[in-house]
Each structure stands twice: as structure tokens, then as C-alpha cells.
């Protein structure tokens, strides 16, 4: 993944092989050829930058209440480009901080789900036998759970869930797809000649799993993780809309929708902006995820 950026296209046409290009590097090159993927990446990039730089981007503090500027339409008073809400808080600032929350929860919960899913799936697929049967039944059980209902019950019991407990709950309920995919991959890769070769060289289970099998599952894992982030953002928005997710004063897009509901008719912008933010972000992440999938496995492209 180091040299030869400029000369790649030509040498590819000529069938020559420039030295040392990893499969990952080639996948990334395919990714950047797809317009939707690049658009998705751009939207995702905006989300990430906004989230990370929220304190510098937001014009006001998200919690700053102002009695003089309650429910102002976008642009009605200077300094509040997207208007204010029923407590006089700046909508733009809350959206920006909302991006931070969405990003944090999306990535955090996905991280939990991916780590759990990879461990369960890899162990299940590699060692097989009774361990595999047991882990697969556990996976089945988790898949049979109505995720949203369980999340609602748990958060309702907790009354005021913290951010950490939220992404633990969300991750814990969402690892099953990752584990199924990783198990399937490991199961088929395990019989590959290069895995057999490694065993014949005297490599142990850990080495075969971490050096040979899991790196070759990275494509599907990354794709799945990207799509999971989108799913988690929706999940969080849903929970927050029910008042069970992120608790005030933290601004979450789902929570903003909930707060805006009583004023839907006189102040529709209170709903439109967070709604649009959710849709755009999820769409962008899905575009990006699909692009990644096509890039990592060109044969799957229809």
C-alpha cells in the first residue's frame, strides 16, 4: 500500500504487475471508482468530521436555553441559522452535537458487536464439533430476540441509561450477523490449501486463525461493520425517540424528533432537520458499505 499511485492504471492495462500491491490496496482502488461509494464516503466523512469537531463547529452550546429566542424559524434571528426549539436552544448546534452522539454510539455499539461476533464466529467455525453446535444455538437464541423490544425493556428498567450502557446493550443485541458471516468464512477458509500448508509448517491454532483465516475475512467484516453503524444509528434514534435512549440534556437526533413532535404543525423545521440528518447519514453509510462490498469482492457485483 505504499508506492506506484501514478503508474497503476497504465500498467494494469498492459497486464504488467507493479511490485507489492496488496489485495486491500486493490480493493480501495476499486472503491474510489464507484460514484455512489465516494458519495457515501463523503457523507460519512462529513458526519465523522462534524462529530469530532463539534465543539468548534457548533455556534452555541447545545444546552444553552434562551427565553428571548423560543421557536424561532430558520434565519428569523441572526446567529440561529436553523432556528431554535421550544426552549430557545440553537437547532444547528444540537444537530452538530447530535452527530457526535450518533457517531459515538454507532461506532461504539458496532465495535462491541464486531468484537463479540468475530470471537464467537471464529471459535465456532474453527474448532467445530460440540462447541460449534453450542455457540450456534446461542446465536440462534439471540437472533430470535425482538431486538428493539429487549432494548426497550432493558433501558426502561435502567431509567437513565448512560452512553456506555447504551452501546453495550445495542452491541450485545446485534453481534449475530457478524458471527454467522465470520463462522461461514472461517469454515470454508479452514479447508483452504494455505491453511493446510500452515498446519504442515507447524503453525498453531492461534497463528492459523489470526494470520491466515481472519485477515481473509476482513473484507466481509468491514462491509458488515459499516452497514452495522448505519443500523446502530437508526437503532439509537428509535430508542431515543421513545425517550429511552440518550437522555437530556445530550442532544440526540432521535430525541430531537421526540421533543419536536408536539410542535410539528407550527414549527416543522424542528422535525425536518434531525429527520433529514438521520436519513442522510444512514443513506451515506449504506452507500459506502455497498461500495466496500463491491470493492472487496468484485465477483459478487450484479
Amino acid at each position: 500500500m505504499k508506492d506506484t499511485e501514478a503508474t497503476l492504471d497504465r500498467s494494469e492495462l498492459e497486464g504488467a504487475s507493479p511490485g507489492g500491491r496488496s489485495p486491500t490496496a486493490m480493493a480501495l482502488r476499486r472503491l474510489f471508482r464507484s460514484h455512489t461509494a465516494v458519495a457515501g464516503l463523503a457523507i460519512t466523512g462529513v458526519l465523522v468530521v462534524t462529530g469530532l469537531l463539534a465543539p468548534w463547529i457548533a455556534p452555541h452550546e447545545y444546552w444553552r436555553i434562551s427565553r428571548e429566542a423560543v421557536m424561532q424559524a430558520p434565519g428569523a434571528i441572526p446567529g440561529h441559522a436553523l432556528g431554535t426549539d421550544e426552549l430557545g436552544r440553537d437547532v444547528l448546534s444540537r444537530l452538530v452535537y447530535g452527530a457526535q452522539i450518533s457517531l459515538l454510539l454507532g461506532v461504539g455499539a458496532t465495535g462491541v458487536a464486531v468484537v463479540l461476533g468475530v470471537i464467537v464466529g471464529a471459535v465456532s467455525g474453527y474448532f467445530g464439533g460440540w462447541l460449534d453446535s453450542l455457540l450456534q444455538r446461542v446465536t440462534d437464541t439471540f437472533m430470535a430476540m425482538p431486538t428493539m423490544l429487549v432494548a426497550i425493556s432493558v433501558t426502561a428498567i435502567m431509567e437513565r441509561p448512560t452512553l456506555a450502557s447504551l452501546f453495550l446493550i445495542m452491541g450485545f443485541l446485534s453481534w449475530t450477523t457478524v458471527s454467522r458471516v465470520v463462522r461461514g468464512q472461517v469454515l470454508s477458509l479452514r479447508e483452504n490449501d494455505y491453511a493446510v500448508a500452515a498446519r504442515s509448517l507447524g503453525a498453531g491454532d492461534g497463528r492459523i486463525l489470526f494470520r491466515h483465516l481472519l485477515p481473509n475475512c476482513m473484507g466481509p467484516i468491514v462491509v458488515l461493520a459499516t452497514l452495522l453503524v448505519a443500523g446502530m444509528i437508526l437503532f439509537e434514534a428509535g430508542l431515543s425517540f421513545l425517550g429511552l435512549g440518550v437522555q437530556p440534556p445530550y442532544p440526540s437526533w432521535g430525541r430531537m424528533l421526540l421533543d419536536a413532535k408536539p410542535y410539528m404543525e407550527e414549527s416543522p423545521w424542528l422535525m425536518v432537520y434531525p429527520g433529514a440528518a438521520i436519513v442522510l447519514t444512514v443513506l451515506g453509510l449504506n452507500f459506502f458499505g455497498d461500495g466496500l462490498r463491491d470493492a472487496f469482492d468484485p465477483r459478487m457485483k450484479v
Binding site: S22, N192, V196, A197, S200, L201, G202, R211, N216
Partner: peptide, 28 residues
């Protein structure tokens, strides 16, 4: 295992696509 080795039929499936020649040959 140091004393017995294997050469495969399929030259495409027998090398880990994510490793360089140096790591493949040097792994043992």
C-alpha cells in the same frame, strides 16, 4: 513437522493472498 512438507496441486489456493512472498516463504 520440520522434516516433512507438502506441495499442493492448486498454485492459486495454496498461497495466502494477503501475505507477501517474504512472509509466505519465511513463515516456517
Amino acid at each position: 513437522r520440520k522434516h516433512m512438507q507438502i506441495i499442493f496441486q492448486d498454485p492459486y489456493g495454496s498461497l495466502n493472498p494477503r501475505m507477501t512472498v517474504e512472509s509466505i516463504v519465511g513463515e516456517a
